[in-house]
Design a protein around this nucleic acid. Structure first.
Lengths: 158, 158
DNA sequence: AATGAAATGCGGCCTCC
DNA sequence: GGAGGCCGCATTTCATT
């Protein structure tokens, strides 16, 4: 088992806040040389702790204003692979979580409007072995990492 | 309203795949000059379409193996700000979604093990105006963006 | 208004200590 | 883990359509 020390965690925290931080900047704040920081980040990638880097997008500004979670119930014998496949086939599905318990899966969907949401849900209900759905419409969200924009979507927050 | 054209979408797609992509690399694939690419990315940040950059982490490799969603029910008159506050106070809570409908909120939590999960849920149930919870334990997940590691957690997928 | 081309720092990257 | 050197990239300015 690989050792991940406090410095590694500080590096990860810095990169969560800003994934494009430069090695020199992080070296400065942590108090290490640039080479050492690069070696550590490379190692974290190697170990699979860091799986990649990505951009955070405000999808509302791109016209995808509605966000929802839908719980999916499948017929008893449905294999996991089938569950994942039916869900991932739908372009609007961002993430699929297979669940132990009441619903068999929880999916995160992004759509343009409520009519669009209806279409997606209808499609899911008729696909594969889906026996039932329950959709939770997202009004606002807050994320531990995310800076202001995402939090500001919750009225009364700042 | 700002115009976001096809090239902007292609840039966003490239940055979603790899948030540390180089301007010159993207300039090459898209067929634009580096300066033009930088101007567009800067503009997307300015417009708030790009809210930031971050690192993708395999939390399981950091010892946070368990992931769950918990639906929270609050007493009738609980204001949204209170809902968000009680949830965000808990360090294990990664994201809070306020919901229109049956549960009042859906939270995404990451914990070390099932005992830890129990602690977090107990804490939530006794905090604020929480009247009930229902927890969905995540077995596996698939994300549209994420490369292999996240998907590999679902048995039988590739 | 958006692009491309060129000049300048700075950062990533590699080698050696 | 640190230091130095080279190359590449980001960044800015200027000219162009």
């Amino acid at each position: 088992m690989p050792e991940i020390d406090e410095i590694d965690h500080r590096l990860l925290r810095l990169l969560r806040e800003d994934g494009r931080r430069t090695f020199s900047e992080m070296a400065g704040t942590i108090g290490l040389s640039v080479a050492a920081v690069k070696r550590r980040v490379d190692r974290l990638k190697e170990l699979g702790v860091i799986t990649g880097f990505t951009v955070q997008i405000d999808y509302g500004k791109l016209g995808w204003a509605i966000e929802a979670f839908t719980e999916l119930h499948y017929a008893g014998a449905t294999p996991v692979s089938e569950i994942v496949r039916t869900a991932t086939d739908v372009a609007e599905v961002q993430t699929v979580f297979t669940i132990a318990g009441d619903p068999d899966a929880l999916i995160h969907v992004r759509v343009r409007d409520l009519g669009h949401l209806q279409q997606v849900i209808d499609h899911l209900r008729h696909a594969g072995n889906v026996t039932g759905t329950k959709t939770l419409l997202v009004l606002g969200s807050w994320s531990r990492d995310a800076p202001a924009p995402r939090a500001s979507r919750i009225a009364g927050m700042k």
